[in-house]
């Protein structure tokens, strides 16, 4: 996807938050320019916002705890919200959630606005709440998020660790909307990232038109579960305004 074809573009500094309203068929390309970035992501069905990204349903439907090319992000209503139609990274985290203020201070030290102005150390929870609040949502809607550009491995005993593979300058991922989707992002550091230096890199975010998933789409055809999930998403649009198309 060439970046000059973006219909909408934003560069999000580390620690900040942003939202995209992606109608079905549009896709969001995220690029971790520095390699030290992390993008926490929540997603909601914009037409019925009680429907939202569900970590557990995403994992068990696809028998995975990592997200990569061909995976989808399932809602709690059996429909894919976003599908990973392109991915240079390989293993995005699903099981660590985000940071709060106390965690950031413990890892990076105290750096508030009064002292540091807009270089203050922001955290993921506050960023998500500020973004949720913009859209009439709240604490109840802050569910476990996905973390793009962070790889978290699990050993045989269940111990988790942030992998060095997370550092991939220029890594990108493309997320196509399968419903009309409200995407909320925080670029605060991953909860397992070590201090003492707060990250500085930007995330490049661009929206382009991908069109609906084809019959042979890599996400749709990844497994029988996803085929049924796409059928469920298509059923959401089975009753268009003004009656069926001729």
């Amino acid at each position: 996807m060439p970046s000059n074809a973006f219909l909408l573009e934003e560069r999000i500094p580390a620690g900040c938050h942003h939202a995209f309203l992606l109608k079905r068929g549009y896709a969001l390309r995220l690029t971790d320019i520095s390699g030290d970035g992390n993008v926490g992501l929540l997603a909601f069905n914009a037409d019925e916002r009680s429907e939202r990204y569900n970590m557990a349903d995403t994992l068990k439907a696809q028998h995975t705890h990592k997200l990569a090319l061909g995976n989808v992000l399932y809602s709690d209503m059996g429909r894919p919200l976003l599908s990973i139609m392109g991915d240079s990274f390989g293993w995005h985290d699903t099981i660590c959630g985000t940071t709060n203020g106390a965690m950031i201070e413990a890892t990076y030290g105290a750096q508030d606005f009064q002292v540091a102005r807009n270089d203050y150390y922001r955290n993921g929870r506050d960023g998500f709440l500020m973004e949720l609040g913009r859209w009439g949502l709240g604490r109840r809607d802050l569910v476990p998020n996905a973390n793009f550009f962070s790889t978290v491995t699990v050993d045989e005993a269940g111990n988790i660790a942030l992998s060095e593979d997370s550092y991939q300058p220029g890594a990108w991922v493309e997320l196509r909307a399968e419903l009309n989707v409200l995407v909320l992002l925080t670029t605060a550091p991953h909860p397992l990232r070590e201090g003492p230096t707060y990250p500085e890199g930007e995330i490049e975010a661009g929206v382009f038109w991908a069109g609906p998933a084809s019959a042979s789409d890599v996400c749709r055809s990844a497994c029988g579960e996803n085929q049924r999930g796409f059928e469920n998403a298509e059923a959401w649009f089975a009753l268009p305004e003004g009656g069926p198309k001729a």
């Binding site: 569900n54 349903d57 439907a61 709690d76 059996g78 996803n226 049924r228 999930g229």
Partner: peptide
């Protein structure tokens, strides 16, 4: 693993 639901059972 979360909880089972009618919708996720269809998937």
């Amino acid at each position: 693993g979360g909880a089972c639901a009618a919708e996720s059972n269809t998937v």
